[in-house]
């Protein structure tokens, strides 16, 4: 049985129209005009238990609306939505016991209290039995190496430490479904790696079904095999990262560094994207020429010192896909 099923989800918001100028603002006091925004326009997907899926899209695409529907905070206009066999907005309190949420921009920990006390408070709010709570907490704390931080007030933690504590906090009641909303936002490179490493371990060892929304494509690349891309309220893509690349572009890059005396001559099947001294970046389409053949040819004809084949950065792909989808 899938952990999450969503079908034809539609959600519209009424937004008050602002009229320009002072006169317009005064008119607005008495009579407002509204227009409707379709935040979700027929969204559908399903997740298997234990899946970690990247849910991406530009700002305002409908990511957080989807997450709020799944969390039981928003009621959709129409469509079907089941999380662990339950409809989220019916019996909200029972539903939210099964889910954990991390909003990267906010913390659920008490600012002035040691981390451990926030954990204890969550234990009481979720009514987790003490034995189970202690086992879960110790396991997570050991897994993440957070032991030395537990007695530190949250306000003294670094952002990266705080984020890891926040993730633990969202898991103390052993939710079957976890929402991570930009868990690496604002973190430095080392902390990002630590959080990603943690999430991978969590995935391997606990098998929590996880929906990750992020704008950081390195997160997606490091963590997710499956990507769902939402744009203008509907699903623009659902599949593996490789398929996403393939759909937008087949292009690959070959960077060659020549030994002294090598000079570039025009070659068929490739175009020069950049050149810097003896270093050339060439783009080619693997459907026209296999990477191995191209490398063999270049190596035969030029004095090559170094070679590197790359995929285009995922940011480029996503940007193209967003553009492609513009109405």
């Amino acid at each position: 049985m899938p952990a999450v099923v969503v079908q034809d989800l539609v959600k519209t918001f009424r937004v008050a129209e602002r009229r320009p100028g002072l006169l317009g603002a005064m008119k607005g006091l008495f009579h407002r005009e509204y227009h409707t925004v379709r935040a979700l326009d027929g969204v559908g997907f399903s997740l298997q238990p234990g899946e970690l899926v990247g849910y991406i899209g530009p700002n305002g695409a409908g990511k957080s609306t989807t997450v709020k529907v799944l969390a039981g905070i928003l009621v959709p206009d129409s469509g079907r939505c089941e999380v662990l066999g339950q409809v989220p907005w019916q019996e909200r309190v029972r539903h939210v016991r099964n889910i954990g949420v991390v909003f990267g921009q906010r913390t659920q920990l008490w600012w002035d209290l040691p981390v451990i006390e926030s954990f204890d408070l969550l234990r009481d709010i979720y009514a987790v039995p003490q034995v189970q709570y202690a086992a879960t907490r110790d396991e997570l704390v050991a897994l993440l190496g957070l032991g030395p931080l537990l007695d530190t007030p949250v306000r003294q933690l670094s952002l990266g430490q705080r984020m890891r504590c926040d993730i633990v906090a969202s898991l103390l009641h052993r939710p079957a479904l976890l929402f991570l909303d930009e868990p690496t936002i604002g973190l430095d490179a080392v902390s990002k790696l630590a959080v990603r490493d943690f999430l991978l371990r969590l995935q391997r060892e606990q098998g929590v079904t996880t929906i990750l929304t992020t704008h950081d494509m390195d997160d997606i690349e490091a963590l997710c095999t499956r990507v769902i891309l939402i744009n203008h309220g509907s699903i623009a893509f659902d599949g593996t990262l490789e398929a996403l690349r393939g759909r937008v572009t087949q292009e690959r890059y070959l960077t060659v560094e020549f030994a002294d005396g090598g000079a570039w001559r025009d070659e068929p099947d490739v175009t020069v994207v950049r050149s810097n001294g003896q270093r050339y970046t060439l783009s080619f389409d693997p459907r026209q020429i296999a990477a191995a053949d191209l490398i063999a040819r270049i190596a035969a004809r030029y004095p090559v010192r170094d070679l590197l084949v790359e995929n285009p950065p995922i940011e480029t792909i996503i940007a193209r896909l967003y553009d492609e989808d513009q109405p």
Binding site: A71, R94, V96, V101, F103, R106, Q108, I125, Y126, A127
Partner: peptide, 18 residues
Amino acid sequence: RDGSVAYEMVRPADLYWY
């Protein structure tokens, strides 16, 4: 104001008494 009331709505607790 900042919308984290959403955090409090995903708790299995009555928001008023909380």
